[in-house]
Nucleic acid binder design. Structure first.
Lengths: 217, 217
DNA sequence: TTGAAAGCTGAACCATGATTCAAGTTCTCG
DNA sequence: CGAGAACTTGAATCATGGTTCAGCTTTCAA
């Protein structure tokens, strides 16, 4: 296992978003896993169209024809991958939160977690972004799901008195936009030795808390 | 000219980002324009790979072969288009500002202008986004250029006393992220009769000014 | 032990669509 | 007006790579 390489699909080689053709034996499950991991790398590096099925199978150390034992098409594989990644992202965010945190701390923690995850799996940007064209439904679902959970967090924060009234879907999308673009700039496109996720998240958090206006005189 | 159709390239059929093969006659300039406009629609509707050169020329009412009088390749056309759009977006933002505005008003105005522009040219999202895969350099340049101009605005705002100290590149990217995602949600993916750009921008602006924390008790 | 079922293999098939090209047609300017 | 430049045309070429397929190997349960 290299550096920021892969294996995001960890134990999940069965998933709800999985292939129509589910393996029945241990050998089959392993091959499927190999294909998914190889695909994550290949799609991440080359993008959907540059990536070729034969290259993926080569990477996975499997014969070309075997691919179609597990997926109906290149497209189906891509969708499965998007589902996997989308799921992983949400998992990581969820794990980063804890009950003791107040609303702002939660936002800081989830952003830091996201940035850390992105750093280990830079492929996600490429793959999720490309889903806009290959699997538009999944792309939209991905962001709408995340937005909903942010909105829910905002609601909870209001109820607990940490956040002001009047925050809703719109602010949730704004927050999501911040997180995505900060990740793009400081993780995916990070120059040399970039800021730590925690430092970045802290600074974003200040902006979130205070806004950018000068103190009212 | 239909509804949200096209003609973004308006008068600019010459641009810096233009094709290597520049037309020398009026007839040529018209054909080039037709190709660019047809391409904006085609790429916007079908995406880069689904779009076909022959379909673009058909749309433009030109013979297939003529395409190569103006562009070296499908790829070159796409790049030219991205340059055009990127340029147009910045133009519109710039036009929306005026000197009397304070820093926050400027942010509101530019966002409102961007949303309005996006509403008229929903293709931009699809095309700019796809540039991530077809023309990565241009994609990155697009966002970095915008971020820089936002950062400059923040600097000016600090100097004028409208904005607090400590805002820089990071906050600029955060702002850009907000704008992009708000546009995605409320313009590109707007349900029925969506909010007006001004209303959206005003609400975002409040978040920017005050943040989301509850008033310090 | 044994016969399906589950997997595996890679050469061959094929559709698609970008690009080329040779032969017109229309400008433009001296 | 005439010659060459600018532009147009669409059929033919060609590369690419996804998908199929017929036969072979491994696994598993009875």
């Amino acid at each position: 296992m290299e550096k920021g390489n892969t294996t995001i699909s960890q134990e999940r080689a069965d998933g709800a978003a999985g292939p129509g053709k589910r393996p029945r034996t241990e050998r089959g499950r392993k091959t499927l896993r190999k294909l998914l991991d190889a695909a994550a790398i290949e799609f991440g590096e080359r993008g959907y169209h540059e990536a070729s099925v034969s290259s993926i199978t080569r990477r996975a150390g499997v014969a070309l024809g075997s691919f179609y034992t597990y997926f109906d098409s290149k497209d189906a594989l891509f969708r499965a991958l998007v589902g996997d990644l989308s799921h992983s992202v949400r998992d990581h965010a969820r794990e980063a939160m804890s009950d003791e945190m107040d609303a702002l701390e939660i936002e800081r923690a989830t952003l830091a977690a996201f940035l850390g995850f992105a750093r280990e799996h830079k492929q996600i940007y490429r793959i999720i972004d490309e889903a806009e064209f290959i699997a538009p439904e999944d792309y939209r679902a991905h962001y709408e799901t995340i937005a909903k959970s942010i909105e829910a967090r905002l609601g909870a924060g209001i109820r607990s008195g940490d956040l002001r009234e009047g925050l809703g879907e719109l602010e949730a999308w704004a927050l999501m936009g911040i997180n995505v673009f900060i990740g793009l700039r400081y993780v995916v496109w990070s120059d040399q030795e970039a800021m730590e996720p925690d430092a970045i998240a802290a600074r974003v958090n200040r902006m979130l808390a205070e806004g950018i206006a000068a103190a009212k005189r």
